[in-house]
């Protein structure tokens, strides 16, 4: 009798950035074009377990999901106890590229959700020569309203409050077990980490004056679920209308966490996007 294993392996890599070596945990599965997956605010790479393990995806892509410092199994930098954590667009975008460099990934596809979707805009603007395509899930140019003190207040249970604050971002049609699994991930962030991430999501990320500066040289696929009240389909569509080289896909019966709240429904929308990226690979003459 042999045990059932998933095809995912986890590793730790040291990522040099800003004079510090961050010990970063990542999971990977498959072979092919590197597909780097970015988790949402206040949680970690477990959100991507379905896509990592999906043979339809990992047969053509080397799927990689990493935990940002302070998240999941990536420990915070020394001295974190003396700082207020506030994620910025600069650190986030540069750190994603530093991670890709540490793993020597050649022109990866980057797919992120929520803050991981919003950062795709910054990657398109600043690192277009180093990425192959961007899949910006639940992303828009400006997403205010989430930088609130209750998410870190010591009189409030951080796990319960952070997790419950995002529960309604998921669609009622999404399977209850997956919705509660997502709630569970959110219940486990360190104190102030969710709010610190939301500093990027709702404060530092204001791309409204920058949309038209993206060249369109790198394809960007925006994908947003109709139950997302933080980044509504209208907010994504209005952003996509201004971003050259982008496509806007609105997903029915799903919310802010497509990859983990309803992987089956998400897959129906994701596979055609991955097919387009593969097709572009087969026709490299497009100059």
């Amino acid at each position: 009798m042999s045990a059932t294993h998933e095809p995912i392996t986890g590793k730790y890599v040291y990522v040099p950035y800003g004079g510090y070596e961050y010990r970063v945990f990542y999971e990977e599965a498959g072979e092919g074009i590197p597909l780097v997956c970015l988790h949402t605010a206040g949680t970690d790479s477990r959100e991507w377990r379905h896509q990592l393990a999906d043979p339809d995806i990992n047969k053509n892509f080397r799927v990689i999901a990493f935990d940002l410092p302070r998240h999941g199994k990536s420990i915070p930098p020394v001295g974190f106890e003396r700082e207020e954590y506030r994620l910025t667009a600069k650190f986030y975008s540069e750190f994603v590229m530093a991670f890709c460099e540490a793993l020597e990934l050649e022109k990866p596809v980057i797919m992120g959700s929520s803050m991981g979707g919003n950062i795709c805009l910054h990657l398109a603007l600043n690192f277009e020569e180093r990425v192959r395509a961007l899949i910006a899930i639940e992303a828009c140019d400006y997403s205010p309203g989430w930088y609130i003190s209750w998410l870190e207040h010591p009189h409030v249970h951080g796990g319960e409050a952070c997790a419950t604050s995002v529960f309604g971002l998921m669609a009622p049609q999404s399977p209850e077990d997956y919705r509660w699994e997502t709630w569970w991930y959110y219940s486990q962030g360190g104190p102030g980490v969710f709010k610190g991430d939301l500093h990027f999501y709702s404060v530092d990320h204001d791309f409204r004056e920058l949309n038209d500066k993206i060249t369109g040289n790198v394809p960007i696929y925006f994908m947003t679920g109709v139950y997302d009240f933080a980044c509504t389909p209208e907010m994504t569509q209005q952003t996509a209308d201004k971003v050259k080289g982008s496509e806007c896909i609105i997903m029915e019966e799903i919310g802010h966490f497509p990859m983990c709240e309803n992987p089956e429904t998400f897959k129906k929308y994701l596979m055609p996007v991955l097919e387009k990226i593969l097709a572009a690979e087969r026709e490299p003459t497009k100059a």
Binding site: S165, G168, L169, A171
Partner: peptide, 29 residues
């Protein structure tokens, strides 16, 4: 329907379809 499946969704500053008042700390607790 979307935007009405949760009180925080309805109360979120983007939507304003529900108003939270008083000692909201007790609510978040």
């Amino acid at each position: 329907p979307p935007m009405y499946n949760d009180v925080w969704a309805m109360a979120h500053p983007l939507h304003g379809r529900l108003k939270m008042d008083g000692d909201v700390k007790v609510m978040w607790q």
